[in-house]
Design a protein around this nucleic acid. Structure first.
Lengths: 144, 144
DNA sequence: TCTTGACCTCAAGCTGACTTGAAGTGGCAG
DNA sequence: CTGCCACTTCAAGTCAGCTTGAGGTCAAGA
């Protein structure tokens, strides 16, 4: 049995987030000692799955839905379609990265005069490119 | 000179967003006809750049800082470092995608019993994986 | 001239995933 | 037995990037 502070320490996820996850039904505490939550060690594994899900772009709600009482039971079709989404996102990010890298090296007096850059620009305007906000997913843990 | 509705139509960006962008100093209106904003046509190019920046993961504030009075003047070092960020993100998403794809095909009774899956899980927990929220970046345009 | 309605402003609301603050509780060291 | 303080709860705040609503304005068509 682990106290919340142990779980926090070992997972790198703040206690407040753990409480929040419990509230959202993502994890369960195995009981209390007084007021204090106690967790079974396998909560760490579960937290890993949550992190995995977040990193893959699932919302907490989706993750909660996927994780049944008896360990994770993830619908395979959901996995496949999420993998495809990631493929698309990777493709777009790759274009962006190449574009940025090109723009950084381009000798055109202004980026607007570079055909390559303008092509990227068109891609950006028409291509439904979506990229994350850059906010952490809770995996970093550092947040005082 | 374009009215805001023209700009909205041609860029796919809602008028409310255009007003918001103006407020944030990302675009300027060239004047008014009565109350109504008028824009010079080159605002469309500027909006393209903004979309590009958003897609590459810059915040609106960063983009505003990069766009000087005299057309875009983007620091090359910023481009390079953003490209590196994208590289990292691509790497992480690739790991995730492979993990999801494997999990979809894996015959282990529970994903937790599959060594491959657990390896991904460990990578997820240790690798500072960060991914976007999945919210749009304004490139999609559709949002009545 | 009058009406229309697309535009305007300003403040507030929204989403998702948390964090923070105030006020309360109780296990355990001394 | 007492006090400490790490935990607890609950409500509210935060962040980014917008959207929405209420109430106002005014150029243009009839």
């Amino acid at each position: 049995m682990l106290e919340i502070s142990d779980v926090a320490k070992q997972s790198g996820i703040p206690a407040s987030t753990l409480r929040y996850y419990e509230e959202r039904g993502l994890i369960r505490s195995a009981g209390r000692r007084g007021l204090r939550r106690l967790f079974e060690p396998d909560v760490l594994e579960r937290l890993g799955l949550i992190s995995l899900g977040r990193a893959a772009g699932f919302t907490l709600e989706e993750i909660a839905a996927m994780m049944s009482e008896e360990g994770p039971r993830i619908e395979r079709t959901a996995l496949v379609s999420k993998a495809e989404e990631l493929d698309e996102k990777i493709r777009q990010l790759t274009i962006m990265r190449d574009g940025l890298r090109h723009a950084a090296n381009c000798r055109a007096p202004s980026h607007m005069e570079c055909p390559h850059f303008r092509r990227i620009l068109r891609a950006a305007m028409t291509g439904r490119i979506s990229v994350g906000s850059g906010r952490s997913t809770g995996l970093n843990g550092r947040n005082d």
